[in-house]
Design a protein around this nucleic acid. Structure first.
Length: 267
DNA sequence: CGAACGACCTGCAGGC
DNA sequence: TGCCTGCAGGTCGTTC
């Protein structure tokens, strides 16, 4: 169930491990993901030049095109030098010399598609700026919030506004910025958005450094968990003391998703 | 146009 | 033990 830092952790692992190897085959056992698995045969015989990322999408760059991979809520990619027989939700293997990359995704919200123009693909071309790149700023958020009554948490989780922020890091960034998640996006002044943009960059960078957040089952390409869960300040901590004021952390529902905050620090 | 909601799918934890 | 409910890190389509 990866957000940007978890996908970036997988990206780094895959790039370090698989760059330069040739795809020798693909075995697809289940095509019914969020969209049907498609075009994978195009990858065969090509060398993996690099592994990119756009928001939560991984891009396995094979020169003539790329495999677009999304892990949805429950997807894992695992590098297996000596692969055991596939289990029930092991939908496909990408075969390389020396091992295979196996996609497991019990809920099947993920994606695995070939595209000759991945950045122009309909899934990717509408995405907002990378939060850790140029083009993302408090000004950008402020501009995109004008005239909008949605909760600020929804604004920052909207991939067309900024790519890659999911439910965990939205709560964390809003806590760090001292902004109530339910506050109407259009009512928040620019200085607050500057602070929020800074908090987003900060929390994502720290999470990447820690190898991502493992709440239940996130693992990198080798099966190692990430260590950012112990540094989450509010997510999953309802009833625990706020690290800033000591008051109890609250859990609310916002658009049917759990949202964590400190009502005192996030006025 | 924006906002709210259900849909997609499986697994797991907790209550009875 | 089993059954039921609610919950889970994402995104998209439909409705008003």
């Amino acid at each position: 169930m990866p957000e940007l830092p978890e996908v970036e952790t997988v990206r780094r692992y895959l790039e370090a491990r698989l760059k330069g190897r040739r795809v020798e085959g693909v075995e697809v056992r289940e095509r019914r993901l969020r969209l049907p698995v498609e075009g994978e045969g195009e990858a065969v015989g090509r060398r993996l030049l690099r592994v990119g990322r756009r928001g939560k999408y991984l891009l396995l760059d094979l020169g003539a095109g790329a495999l677009i991979v999304h892990l949805g809520m429950s997807g894992h990619l695992r590098w297996l030098p000596a692969p055991p027989p596939p289990g029930p939700h092991d939908h496909l293997d990408l075969l390389f010399e020396g091992g295979r990359l196996r996609l497991r995704d019990p809920r099947r919200f993920g994606l695995f598609l070939w595209s000759a123009e991945p950045l122009g693909h309909p899934l990717l071309c509408g995405l907002g700026p990378e939060p850790l790149g140029e083009g993302f700023s408090g000004e950008h958020l402020h501009r995109r919030a004008q005239g909008r009554r949605i909760a600020v948490k929804h604004l920052i989780m909207d991939g067309r506004v900024v790519a890659g922020i999911g439910n965990i890091y939205a709560s964390e960034a809003l806590f760090r910025a001292g902004i109530h998640p339910a506050r109407a996006a259009g009512d928040i002044p620019l200085p607050r958005y500057r602070r929020l943009a800074g908090a987003i960059r900060e929390v994502l960078s720290e999470a990447i450094e820690a190898g991502g957040t493992t709440l239940r089952d996130f693992r990198d390409g080798e099966g190692r968990p990430g260590y950012f869960a112990q540094r989450l300040l509010v997510y999953g901590r309802a009833g625990e003391p706020c690290p800033q004021c000591g008051g109890p952390i609250q859990r609310i529902r916002l658009g049917q998703r759990s949202t964590y905050l400190c009502p005192r620090c996030q006025g």
